[in-house]
Amino acid sequence: MHLSDRVTGAVLVALGGAAAIVGSRLPAVPGQDVGPAAFPLVIGSGLVICGALIAFGVGRSFEVPEEEDAGPGPWRLGGLRALIPPALLAFYVYASEPLGFLLTGAIMVLVAAFALGARPRLAVPLAIVAPLLVHLAFYKLLRVPLPAGVLPAPW
């Protein structure tokens, strides 16, 4: 999503300010002036300054004008498609334990492939084969404890 510099600058000012204030309230090490508060204070102040400069448009002359790859029309709704991958990762977090890796992985691959415009002829075999191969590599060779869930792997 493309936001104006004013918005991102303001977000940085707010974030930096919050970090500096919350950070400065951290308990100090007894008998020492410099403690865990010093660094967040410096960083937070820096972020406030940078955010303000960005909001006022300083330094924009250095930016390479980016080519708009998506038109304004499909962008409105189509932009939400970008959230599919993180949503699938969140799905993995909550589903992999009860469903097991193979089923969760198959659903992830299937949804992502369809979202990218794959035909069922490609997406379905991919959703079956890819999780199996990944499971084989990570579970058998690298010994990562992937959850079995309702559909345990054949090995």
Partner: peptide, 9 residues
């Protein structure tokens, strides 16, 4: 559409 889902996994 075949590469990216695998990368995500």
């Amino acid at each position: 559409a075949a590469v990216m889902p695998v990368i995500l996994l």
